[in-house]
Design a protein around this nucleic acid. Structure first.
Lengths: 152, 152
DNA sequence: TCCTTTTATATAGCAAGCTATATTTATTTA
DNA sequence: TAAATAAATATAGCTTGCTATATAAAAGGA
């Protein structure tokens, strides 16, 4: 650590940020015509798989904070992608359902996400793709471990 | 594309987003005591290398939009990290300088970024680290190419 | 010179993240 | 059972990113 050379373009953190922004922009370009936005994607995937989930269940599934999800769900309700029905057993809980409008978009939206991933990984061999995903998983796991080890 | 199985955890875009957020959170944890935030990092790096740059120069260096940088610079000025001096040749232009406070933080801040990268890549061999950076560069380049090929 | 266009920066308004805190309902405990 | 605690969701307020548009100064053209 002598000459204090720190080039952003060889920093993993910088590249991760840039890559994530390009993914989001590319996905947005593809799904905006459907009336969707990138931040809604994880919630939609979970609801396409099974409706009637509660916000709490979604939070557990979707590595984002409760407050972030609450706001995203509010926007999705505003945009007529979901409806919420009060639970009968527990007055605090609401069950979340897709509207017909959202239900119908599954194929096109998932296709858009697949296409965006393909665009980013164009020129990668199957072996390289697998290795890239593995690297990302490992980096995520390492940072999650460090994070949780910190709060205790 | 039959069963429409799309697992977020094997989607490059999803992982990139998660990784970028963990990088930002980890860096923030480390540099908050210095009075810095992650979004200021690229501008700070460019100014530690050379002061007196204009906003336009920074935009060209820093893959972010002009409006994003304008807001980041406004926050940095508010936090007494930079000062701006009107150019004498051109009334539209302002030259940007670091305050003593910001100038002094270089070593610690860069050290924090290096430590965060190390945390994320713990367990990677040197060869794997290099390959990971190369993969990210390739994905970024592929998406940038697709993006620019779109607007023309 | 005056008008138009270009350039540099700022502002408006939005999405998606975050932390911290409020609110409402359920559950526990004294 | 009443008060305290816990749990589910919402809200406040912030940063960082974006697109689109406004503003002000400079440069160019008729």
């Amino acid at each position: 650590m002598q000459g204090m050379i720190f080039e952003k373009d060889s920093s993993a953190g910088y590249l991760a940020n840039q890559m994530a922004r390009l993914f989001a922009a590319g996905l947005q370009r593809r799904i905006r015509p459907l009336g969707l936005s990138p931040g809604q994607f994880p919630a939609l995937l979970a609801l396409w798989a099974k409706e009637g989930r509660t916000q709490k269940e979604l939070v557990q599934l979707l590595d984002i904070e409760q407050a972030t999800l609450a706001n995203t769900l509010a926007r999705m309700e505003r945009d007529s992608l979901i409806t919420r029905r009060a639970s009968e057993e527990d007055g605090r809980v609401q069950e979340i359902f897709l509207t017909d409008k959202a239900r119908v978009l599954e194929k096109e939206a998932v296709g858009a996400a697949i296409a965006q991933n393909a665009e980013a990984l164009e020129g990668f061999s199957e072996q390289e793709k697998a290795q890239f995903l593995d690297f990302m998983h490992r980096a995520v796991a390492a940072m999650q471990k460090a994070q949780s080890g910190n709060s205790r």
